[in-house]
């Protein structure tokens, strides 16, 4: 099934979830949970935490499906946003992840490789890929590290061995150029 019909099916299922149809939530879960765990794990690294993020997100979807607005983006994007935000909150909630800090540092290189892999895996016809391709490497890398693996400005600075202020400027300038290219 191609991405467009997946999108349509998710949207249709979400409309049913909004009407209180729990079986449709189950179908949505069956179709999307595996992909969403993968998205969350790129950010959280650990499968158990990624699964927890997805679990929280589906409870939130059940409660909030009626606020989904089909005119403003696909249901899959909406679903993924809820999972990403949940994962980012868990990541930023330092206390919970303290004990994996060493692990996180150790996997720093692996994480930036994940960000590059996601970019490489974008189909060439995607406008996002073409526009990211026009940015210079440090801007592109900063943006990908933030979105794909959830790095903070500080972590990106450490990865790119650049001052935090410089990284902030790269990202802001990069995102302006990117949006101009995409529009």
């Amino acid at each position: 099934m191609d991405a467009t019909s997946d999108d349509d099916l998710c949207t249709a299922l979400l409309v049913r979830v909004a009407r209180g149809d729990r079986a449709s939530l189950g179908e949505l879960f069956a179709r999307e949970a595996g992909r969403l765990i993968a998205v969350a794990r790129r950010i959280l690294r650990r499968s158990d935490l990624a699964e927890e993020a997805v679990q929280d997100a589906f409870v939130a979807v059940w409660q909030r499906a009626s606020t989904y607005d089909g005119a403003r983006g696909s249901a899959r994007a909406w679903l993924t946003t809820i999972v990403r935000n949940r994962a980012l909150n868990m990541l930023r909630d330092g206390a919970r992840l303290d004990y994996v800090d060493d692990d996180m540092l150790e996997h720093f290189g692996e994480r930036s490789a994940d960000a590059e892999a996601a970019y490489a895996a974008l189909p060439d016809r995607e406008a996002l890929k073409q526009c990211l391709g026009q940015l210079d490497a440090s801007r592109r890398r900063s943006i990908l590290l933030a979105y794909v693996v959830g790095f903070t400005h500080g972590e990106i600075a450490a990865d790119l061995k650049a001052p935090v202020g410089t990284v902030k400027a790269w990202i802001r300038r990069g995102m302006i150029a990117l949006q101009e290219c995409l529009s």
């Binding site: 595996g34 699964e51 983006g73 696909s74 994007a77 993924t80 996002l128 794909v148 949006q179």
Partner: peptide, 28 residues
């Protein structure tokens, strides 16, 4: 919304991971 919709394409580059049997149970 425009930027989010474009960046969502990066979310679709992941390969799905195994879903533990009891996860849906917990959601339910």
């Amino acid at each position: 919304l425009t930027a989010a919709q474009h960046f969502h394409k990066l979310d679709l580059t992941t390969a799905p991971e195994p879903v533990p049997d009891q996860l849906w149970q917990k959601v339910s």
